[in-house]
Design a protein around this nucleic acid. Sequence first.
RNA 1: GCCCGGAUGGCGGAAUUGGUAGACGCGCUGGACUCAAAAUCCAGUGAUAGCAAUAUCGUGAGAGUUCGAGUCUCUCUCUGGGCACCA
Length: 969
Amino acid sequence: MAKYNHKEIEKKWQKKWNKDELYRVGEDAKKPKYYILDMFPYPSGEGLHVGHPKGYIATDIFARMKMMQGHNVLHPMGWDAFGLPAENYAIKNKVHPRVATEKNIATFKSQIEKLGMTYDWDREIDTTDPEYYKWTQWCFLKMFERGLAFESHEPINWCPGCQTGLANEDLEDGRCERCDSEIEQKPMRQWVLKITDYADRMLEDLDKLPEWSNSIREMQRNWIGRSEGAIIKFDLKSESDHNSQFSTLNSNVEVFTTRVDTIFGCTYMVVAPENPVISDQKSVISNYDEVQEYIDASKKKTELERTELQKDKTGVEIKGIKAVNPFNGEEIPVFVADYVLGHYGTGAVMAVPAHDERDAEFAKKYDLPIKQSVAQTFNGEGKNKVQKDKPMTERKTVDVILKHWEKDEYFCLDWKINNWKAFIVGGVEGEETLEEAALREAQEESGYKNMKVIGTVGQEIHSNFYAAHKQVNRNPVMRNCVYIELQDGERGELEEEHTKHHDGVWVKKDEVQDFLNLSEPKIYFDILQNGEKAFTEDGTLIDSGEFSGLKSEEAREKMVAWLEKKKLGGKKVNYKLKDWVFSRQRYWGEPIPIVHCEKCGVVGVPESELPVKLPEVKHYEPSGTGESPLATIEDWVNTKCPKCGGDAKRETNTMPQWAGSSWYYLRYIDPKNDNALVDKDKEKYWSPVDFYVGGAEHATRHLIYARFWHKFLFDIGVVNYEEPFTRLQHVGLIMAEDGRKMSKRWGNVINPDDIVEVYGADALRVYEMFMGPFSQSTAWSTKGLTGAKKFLERTWRLFEEKELIDCGGDCKDIPKELPVLLHKTIKKVSEDIEGFDFNTAISQMMIFVNEATKHERLPKEGMKKFLQLLAPFAPHMAEEIWREKLGEKESVFKSTWPKYNPKKIVEEKVEIVIQVNGKVRDKIEMDAEIDEDGAKAAALESENVQKHIEGKEIRKVIFVPGKLISFVV
RNA sequence: GCCCGGAUGGCGGAAUUGGUAGACGCGCUGGACUCAAAAUCCAGUGAUAGCAAUAUCGUGAGAGUUCGAGUCUCUCUCUGGGCACCA
């Protein structure tokens, strides 16, 4: 052995491990199993760049440690190979996608193998292999049999670039995720999977996944977008020509709302352009042409345009009809506007501009009435809390915002008792209007004479509190606010009753918010400055008939019950998640195993005839007519109906790329089984996937689909547990050195093959794990890579140049700090690999190597343990030293992972920090077990501590054993 | 707009329950070796003042709690990600 030659070593051990079948695994009841999984890659034509294997390196390190800890580890790899790029490449270069795919897989595999991975290649899978997609088709048939896969003619997302329909999950900001084309809505025949049937279960079971990050669970919750509300029927009335009276039509419109409690504030209704009520009522709509014109215009807009213009809401009143609010019988106008979406809820909403921002915007633009029905509510806290045994009184008050006659200042009251800081507030008496009361109060409390009422500010607010000085509850105080401007400074004498409790002060505009200490005046002043926004939170119902006075939540329950009793609607749950549009009009995907028979209709291909193989075609181009290229192959399309034997045609749509990846992790368990998707016993042994590692971009696509698919397989008894992935970890990207994403386009791609050639696979592995926290994205640095390489070389030299002393477990003549450090290192590296904190694990190993380098003689046993820790990170180098230098007979990966001895990481002497008033003044070495008195005595001997304590009294001593002692003087 | 993260030296990043901020690596500076360079090794490296001991300041900004705050609370700024007219 001499110089560290990575090229020789790495090739040598890769060959040897392969030959010895080191990574082959089978079911072994004696060992605990561990299934660790990488998200399998799409084998693109560009090959891997150094960022791609980051996750694979991490799982490999993890897998190796688990192996050494005695687990039976399943760590497989495969290819998600159906998809558009291969097909587009085929179109361009006239190469069959199969050929291009095979070539790409070979490239990927060779790149991955050079990194020294533990993959069991006997279990390799490829989603484009008919033996694999047979089972994808089988899953589809099972869903079809249970009504979960069905044909639909609803308009779907159509990508004009890719010439295919897409699922919602394939869009990004209204554009095609793949080619960036603007998406159109196109009605066409589609296969759809009823994923919404599983929405609630997918939502609930997120709580069973504590080892998933909160952020991804939150993302899934948002994507599923469950909202609970009510359906309400509004009867329609039409205007008769003669007397402009409205008469009841035998028809109604259903709206969906989550805020039925605001319904007394509903002042109009809006239906989506797609809502069929418009054409149904054509005969009674007096401006039908205008309405139709609006609908046509909004149909021309793409979804993107409709949402991009979201600030500017447009709409047209549908004249000749009115809707009737079932709660109060009010007749309200009906509008058509494209801010209401056809595909969500019922495609119609009750508009409550006082309590919904979008409705408010529309109402302001078209000058529609705004009517408050829910009051913002404050409840007193502490001393101000309502006391049940004291009398309850209602009271109506007005807050007065009084502006100075020439300066930008406002008149406020500084209360001597209560410490309130507020505007003038007074009761509204008898028949007084708000304005009259405000004017009277302003004059009484301020003494100024000439003032002008400008208008009211904001909505009614309710306050519930206990007024201690009167010993009654104010329950509620219904407050409003009036804005008044002084005309001049003429002022009379103030009566004593108005000065004894508070002083009047002028406060500059910018300081008013800081001055005020009560919520209600703050809200009013904010509205005066910044304009009014709809109040969209819960509160107390007002002007809502029999429901007045209820809290929003209680009101919703009672109102839904009322609707159900009267058969005018009821409870309803809606989801943002849409059913999964599952057919693609492209070639390179799994054929959907369905035939269309003239007699029998849609018939599933019998299981015995699976797989339905993808036929050879001359052209892969999409037809553009919404049919897949398969439609042109007559002898494939024309077939016999499996039911009646008559003429039938095959389904020519193919499945989306997500299909094969929705269940692939199950096939690794039993990749060659021809009789079942997976053998039941094997499935029981290996599943679930204990740990799943991959990119965050799949949080709402692959991971939604796979969870759905898995739950379906659970329901039909293929798997024995409900959630496929127990622990989930995201890989952070590796950016290029210039901070941009690595891409052919920027010319900043680094190929791992080149790095392996120059620096070695081990250096690349160590570097990528050392770059930073695993889930964080970090820029590549070739300088940083040399640091990793240097660390490996220093480690190599340790075994090359130092004298290794073989003295059993317990060496007397070696530096005593080394065993302590070793056991600390064992602890840290083991825990950090488990937690995926590789950067700190490596840093700890560096500390160990730095210390060991200082000594000439090292304990052999300890150094072996260190080598075992290093082995998962730098497997080739570790194996070389283990076998060739230390002469071990078996692979280091067959050795047993070292355990740390808790007793050995306790140091005898520790540095105790001495603080005076929280500042570090000295550090003294003491016995680790020293008690407070001992530490205190030692600390007080320090010169520097004495200097800071001198002449002062020690008031308190805080002692943290083994850490610090702190004096407060 | 809403929901999650994040902000620490020249750079990547460390820091159990609040308890020595800057571990480890890169870079930089000086030195050793060398005819010289590379490689390697040794020392130094948050800022300011000082020969030094040491002192003061310092974890995006501002307030607060505490003997003590990168860590906890509130407000704000910037930034990454997700969702977005979802009624």
